[in-house]
C-alpha cells in the first residue's frame, strides 16, 4: 500500500476516535450560546473561535464528527447489506431475474443523478436524520449491488463452487459461505469510497438545509451558516474549520479506497 493510504488511515483513525470520545475532547457545550462572544477569533478559550450565536466552533466540529460517522456507518452498512443481497441474487440466479435487476433497476438508479434523487426524497418527505439516512441508502445500495453481481458472476464458475454443489449445499449456503467471502475484496473498496460519499452527501444535504436541522452541529449546516459575505469578511474561521474537517475526512476515505483498490488490483499496482 502506498504512503497516501497510510495517511488516509491515520486521518480516518483520528476522525473515528474524535467521534467516539467527543464528550471528552470537546471543551464546551455545543449548544451553549454566548451572545457577547459572537464571531470571536480563535483564542486559548475558544480554539477555533465562536460562531454567530457565540457557540464554540471547536466543540461543534468535534461533535460534527459524531454525526458524520453515525450517518456514514449506518448508510454504508444498510446500503451494503441491501446491495450485496440484491447483487448476489442477480448474479447467482441470472436469467430473467438478472435482466430485470441489473438490466433495468440498476440502470434506472444509475441513470438518475444520486444527489438529485436524495434532494427530491428529502424535499417530499421532510428533513430529519432518519429521512436523510433513508434517502442516502436509497441512492447508495446500487453501487454495492453492481460490484457484488460482477463478483458472483466470476466466482460462481470456480471449481470449489461446483464441488460445494456436488456435496449438496443449498443455494443460500453456496452464496453466503462460499461465494461471498471470495467476493468481499472489491466490496471493501466500495465501502471505503461509500463512506466518503455518505459523509459528503450528508454534509451537502445539510448545507442545502435538507439534512439534519439546526442546532445539531452537522459540518454542512455549519458551513451553510458561515457563508454570508460579511461573515466571510469578518470571521472566516467559522467557515474554515468545518470546511477543513469535511475535506480531510472525505480525502482520508478516498485515499483508503484508492489505495486498497490499487493494492488488490496488481494491474494497477505496476502502473
Amino acid at each position: 500500500m502506498n504512503r497516501l493510504t497510510y495517511i488516509g488511515l491515520a486521518i480516518a483513525a483520528i476522525f473515528i476516535l474524535t467521534a467516539i470520545f467527543a464528550p471528552f475532547i470537546a471543551t464546551q457545550d455545543v449548544t451553549a450560546q454566548d451572545l457577547f462572544m459572537r464571531y470571536a477569533a480563535p483564542s486559548a478559550r475558544h480554539w477555533f473561535g465562536t460562531d454567530a450565536l457565540g457557540r464554540d466552533v471547536f466543540s461543534r466540529v468535534v461533535y460534527g464528527a459524531r454525526i458524520s460517522l453515525e450517518v456514514g456507518i449506518i448508510v454504508v452498512t444498510v446500503s451494503a447489506v441491501i446491495g450485496i443481497f440484491i447483487g448476489a441474487i442477480a448474479g447467482f440466479y441470472g436469467g430473467l431475474v438478472d435482466k430485470i435487476l441489473s438490466g433495468y433497476i440498476f440502470n434506472v438508479f444509475l441513470a438518475f443523478p444520486g444527489l438529485l434523487l436524495a434532494i427530491a426524497l428529502v424535499a417530499f418527505l421532510g428533513a430529519g436524520l432518519g429521512k436523510l439516512i433513508l434517502a442516502l441508502c436509497v441512492i447508495g445500495w446500487v453501487g454495492y449491488a453492481r460490484v457484488m453481481r460482477g463478483q458472483v458472476l466470476k466466482v460462481r464458475e470456480y471449481d470449489f463452487v461446483q464441488a460445494a454443489r456436488a456435496l449438496g449445499a443449498s443455494n443460500m449456503r453456496i452464496l453466503f459461505t462460499h461465494i461471498l467471502p471470495n467476493a468481499i475484496q472489491p466490496l471493501i473498496v466500495q465501502a471505503s469510497l461509500g463512506m466518503a460519499g455518505a459523509v459528503l452527501a450528508e454534509a451537502s444535504l445539510s448545507f442545502l438545509g435538507l439534512g439534519i436541522p439546526p442546532p445539531a452541529p452537522s459540518w454542512g449546516t455549519m458551513i451553510e451558516e458561515a457563508r454570508g459575505i460579511d461573515i466571510l469578511y469578518n470571521a472566516p474561521h467559522v467557515l474554515f474549520f468545518p470546511g477543513i474537517a469535511i475535506a480531510l475526512t472525505v480525502l482520508a476515505f478516498n485515499f483508503i479506497g484508492d489505495g486498497l483498490r490499487e493494492y488488490l488490483d496488481p494491474k494497477q499496482r505496476q502502473r
Binding site: A196, S204, I223, R227, L232, L239, A247, L251, N254
Partner: peptide
C-alpha cells in the same frame, strides 16, 4: 487531483469567494 475530488463544492466555493 485527489484534493479536487475530495473537496466538496460547498467548501471550495466559499473559499474561492473569500
Amino acid at each position: 487531483a485527489l484534493l479536487g475530488i475530495s473537496l466538496p463544492t460547498f467548501v471550495i466555493g466559499p473559499f474561492l469567494m473569500y
